[in-house]
């Protein structure tokens, strides 16, 4: 039962890492502009689901369709290109290049897309401003706080105007106030640009920023709206 007009759809995904099943029949769908929280205890397969949805990992079985294209049938290079142009990513930590300044970090995806350095950094600065971390632009990630770092990461995820943002425990390393601020900024920015957000989290207060949640347990998804 796939809702009409879904942007990203996964059907019956299976994935096993070295004899340990991570996904055993997971389904997913998301509309443009929708924020969906993926909940579940640790080790339940949340992150693996996100990796499969984003085309980082190929599922052993099942299909992922994005905007009518079968992601699982694309080559590694094609998926990389898609991730560059259509997707954005925010991880828990360790995603910013420690040697680059924050502006340079945000400009990174634009430069990968072939935009010249000056122009890319201009856009990056605008995004840093939107996320209220313009002051950190010339600093390196090691010199700013974790909350600021995550905002820089959010700016980097959004800078290419992606259609889907994948956020894997984006507030996992933050205190609740910084975490909420990051979530507010992330969801607001995503909504205003009609980007869908796949939000993997184990924090319900963070999940409360979503429009809908699905629960992953033992590699299977349950959509509370459709269960029972």
């Amino acid at each position: 039962m796939i809702p009409e007009g879904s942007l990203l759809i996964a059907e019956d995904l299976h994935k096993t890492y070295a004899h340990t099943p991570a996904l055993a029949g997971a389904c997913f769908s998301i509309h443009p502009g929708e924020v969906v929280a993926v909940l579940g205890p640790s080790g339940s397969g949340k992150s693996t689901l996100l990796h499969c949805l984003a085309g980082i990992v190929q599922p052993d079985a099942g299909r992922v369709r994005y905007a009518g294209r079968d992601l699982t049938a694309l080559s590694d290079a094609e998926r990389s290109a898609l991730r560059r142009t259509d997707f954005g990513f925010v991880f828990q930590f360790g995603q910013l290049v420690p040697e680059l300044s924050c502006t340079e970090n945000v400009a990174l995806p634009l430069r990968l897309a072939g935009i010249r350095r000056k122009a890319a950094e201009q856009v990056a600065m605008e995004w840093l401003e939107r996320l209220e971390v313009a002051d950190s632009g010339s600093k390196r990630p090691g010199e700013i706080s974790g909350g600021q770092g995550q905002r820089v990461a959010v700016a980097r995820a959004l800078v290419t105007s992606p259609r889907v943002v994948f956020a894997d425990e984006p507030t996992g390393a933050l205190d609740s106030y910084s975490g909420e601020r990051v979530m507010e900024l992330l969801t607001e920015a995503a909504r205003s640009s009609n980007a869908a957000v796949v939000l993997v989290t184990h924090e319900t207060r963070v999940a409360a920023y979503s429009d809908r949640e699905i629960v992953v347990r033992d590699g299977r998804t349950r959509d509370p709206d459709h269960s029972l």
């Binding site: 929280a37 909940l39 319900t204 999940a207 409360a208 509370p224 269960s227 029972l228």
Partner: peptide, 16 residues
Amino acid sequence: LDTQRAEHLRLMRVLT
């Protein structure tokens, strides 16, 4: 529990 959680989350969304 899932049903209850969904209900909790619904309220939390409203509050958020």
